[in-house]
Design a protein around this nucleic acid. Structure first.
Length: 258
DNA sequence: ATGTCCTCTCTTAGAGGA
């Protein structure tokens, strides 16, 4: 079973790229972020015609998350991160697919640092960590997949020294990621490729992709059950080179059948 | 500071976000 996460950066603007990738990679489950589309503008029909069921939580202009599934039923659990009823940003959706809890998240960017956006990011991380702890306590298989907007270590940044005061790499944010992991989650790509340079994002500016000036900010974290089933993990980095591509590349894992 | 590309609007240019 293959599960992928992909920040599409505009689900309608990137629809040809998304469909081309879905056909080529044929993942079983997909978490999408940055739909940048209101609920009613999600390209439901095109996704269905590509062979996928879908649930999504849209928002005008920004954010927006979706879960796609090729064959298995999607049973929605929630479409909001618990802990703040005031939070109206569409950044979280959660469902059961194939007996696995799939949490699809789009963590706040948090720039500029310091400021209210950075504080919002830290608050979101705190709520997310608490919710992830609850999921673990339920003792069910869980994947936390999405755009975390966090480079966990220096290995995940092309030039770490330039990013120390950026909200994607600030110490507070990396510490929060460590705490999340320490609860019992496994960073799937790092487990299988501990020393490799792996990026999932390349800025549109300054030919970042051709220079391979990238960041690893899209992650799939696995509960202990699933970490034992992990067979392979990688990035479809070539997708980033396609015309009219998102600035992210799809990131995936392969799990053994039970 | 800048670069690029998305979406939306007091729309065909500029703002805001990443």
């Amino acid at each position: 079973m293959r599960i992928a996460t992909y920040n599409v950066n505009g689900v309608n603007g990137r629809l040809p790229v998304l469909l081309k990738w879905l056909e080529a990679a044929a993942p079983d489950v997909v978490c999408l972020q940055e739909l940048k589309a209101p609920q009613e503008k999600f390209p439901e029909q095109a996704i269905h015609e590509a062979g996928y069921h879908a649930i999504w939580h849209g928002q005008k202009s920004w954010n927006g998350v979706a879960i796609l599934s090729k064959s298995a039923e999607i049973k929605e659990l929630r479409r909001q991160l618990p802990g703040d009823p005031e939070d109206e940003q569409s950044r979280y959706i959660e469902a059961i697919v194939n007996n696995i809890v799939i949490a699809c998240l789009y963590l706040p960017n948090g720039n500029p640092y310091p400021g209210p956006k950075f504080e919002y990011k830290l608050g979101w991380l705190k709520r997310f960590t608490a919710h992830a702890r609850k999921l673990l306590a339920e003792d069910v298989p869980v994947v936390l997949a999405g755009d975390y907007n966090i480079m966990p270590t220096e290995l995940d940044v092309y030039k770490p020294e330039r990013w120390v005061n950026d909200a994607l790499f600030r110490e507070e944010v990396r510490d929060a990621f460590k705490k999340l992991i320490a609860q019992g989650f496994t960073d799937a790509l790092r487990k299988l490729h501990p020393d490799e340079t792996i990026y999932t994002f390349w800025d549109y500016f300054r030919n970042a992709y051709t220079r391979n000036a990238g960041l690893r900010i899209d992650h799939l974290l696995l509960s202990p059950h699933l970490a034992n089933r992990l067979l392979a993990a990688g990035v479809n980095h070539e997708v980033r080179g396609w015309e009219k591509s998102s600035d992210h590349a799809p990131t995936w894992i392969e799990l053994a059948d039970e």
